[in-house]
C-alpha cells in the first residue's frame, strides 16, 4: 500500500470513528430533548464546531501514529510527495465528493420546502458532508487500486 493510499485509509477510518462518537453524542442530546427546543440551533452549531475541532485533532494524532507504526514495520521513513497522478486522483475524488454533497444539498432544500424541521436539515447537512467525504475517499482509493 502506497503512502497516499495509507493516508486515505487513515482518513476514512478516522472519519467513521469520529462520526460514530458524534452520532452517539447527538443521540444523547436528542433523547434529552435538546434538539427540539428553541436552542436546538445553538446545540447543533456547537456540536458541529466540536466535531470539526475533534476531527482535526484525531486525524493528526492517528496520522502520526500510523506513520510511526508503518516506519517501524516497513523501515521506510521517506514520504512520497504528491505527483501528477496523485493530483489528478485528488481532483476526481473532490469532484465526486462535491457532486454527492450537491445532491444531498438539493435534497435537503426540497425536504425543507416540504416542511421538515430546520434542526434535522442542519444535522442532515453534517451527515451529508461526512458521506460525501467517505465517497470522495473511496473513489480515490478505487482509482489508486484499479487505475484509470
Amino acid at each position: 500500500m502506497s503512502y497516499q493510499e495509507r493516508n486515505i485509509v487513515t482518513y476514512l477510518i478516522t472519519g467513521i470513528v469520529v462520526m460514530a462518537v458524534y452520532s452517539f453524542h447527538m443521540y444523547g442530546q436528542f433523547e434529552a430533548g435538546l434538539l427540539n427546543g428553541a436552542d436546538a440551533g445553538i446545540q447543533i452549531g456547537w456540536s458541529a464546531i466540536k466535531l470539526i475541532g475533534g476531527s482535526i485533532i484525531v486525524t493528526i494524532i492517528v496520522s502520526i501514529l500510523v506513520s510511526i507504526v508503518n516506519a517501524i514495520i516497513t523501515q521506510e521513513t521517506e514520504f512520497d510527495a504528491a505527483d501528477e497522478r496523485d493530483k489528478l486522483i485528488d481532483l476526481i475524488g473532490m469532484k465526486v465528493g462535491f457532486i454527492t454533497f450537491s445532491i444531498f444539498f438539493v435534497g435537503g432544500m426540497i425536504w425543507l420546502a416540504l416542511g421538515a424541521p430546520m434542526q434535522f436539515i442542519l444535522l442532515g447537512f453534517i451527515y451529508a458532508m461526512f458521506i460525501s467525504s467517505l465517497i470522495e475517499g473511496s473513489t480515490r482509493l478505487v482509482l489508486y487500486r484499479r487505475g484509470f
Binding site: S2, Y3, Q4, D80, A81, D83, E84, R85, G147, F148
Partner: peptide, 21 residues
Amino acid sequence: GVSRQTIVAIEAAKYSPSLEL
C-alpha cells in the same frame, strides 16, 4: 520525479502520463 506507484501504474498501462512526464 514521481512516486514508484506512478511508474508501476504507467508500466501496467493503468495510467496515461502527461506529455511532460
